[in-house]
């Protein structure tokens, strides 16, 4: 059953990419860049899909636009700027690092750092806690007493 599903999804995945496979380029090296760009550019209408996955009319238009700009000889950076000027940084799945986005970029580091500090602190506390629970010297004797009492009884 699982294998059937796997085969089915593999067979269907071809249709998902069918739209981008029909694109013709004058220079074969454009294809890889085209694929990369439409994977990293976000469809402005459909919130959480990239241009490659979305079949909305606006995504189709933007894929054509990316193709046209590639054929015009623009660099990836220039194409992203071109689209950002029109659709805002929303369209980038990999936003540039600037004053609006630096928090987005550094927050994983900050969280990792804070988490690391917390872990370090608690693990040290754990060590000192076990140390403080060392058995008092006279408790051995008491234990022996209790045990021998039990044997006697």
């Amino acid at each position: 059953m699982k294998i059937c599903l796997l085969l089915l999804s593999a067979a269907l995945s071809g249709f998902v990419f069918a739209t981008s496979e029909l694109v013709e380029f004058s220079d074969p090296s454009y294809r890889a860049r085209y694929q990369q760009l439409i994977t990293e550019l976000r469809c402005p209408k459909c919130q959480n899909q990239n241009l490659a996955d979305s079949n909305s009319p606006i995504s189709r238009d933007l894929r054509n636009e990316v193709q046209r700009l590639l054929e015009d000889g623009l660099s990836n950076q220039e194409i992203e700027t071109y689209l950002t000027n029109r659709y805002s940084a929303f369209i980038l799945y990999r936003p540039e690092v600037n004053k609006n986005t630096y928090l987005l970029w550094v927050s994983p580091l900050i969280i990792l750092l804070v988490g690391g500090l917390v872990v370090a602190r608690f693990s040290r506390q754990g060590v000192s806690a076990t140390k403080s629970q060392e058995i008092a010297p006279d408790s051995d004797e008491r234990l022996n007493d209790l045990l021998s009492d039990e044997e006697d009884g």
Binding site: P44, I58, D61, E65, R86, Y87
Partner: peptide, 12 residues
């Protein structure tokens, strides 16, 4: 063809 729409960033 939606060319001006594209320059305006029209998405709907």
């Amino acid at each position: 063809r939606g060319s001006l729409g594209l320059d305006l960033g029209v998405y709907g």
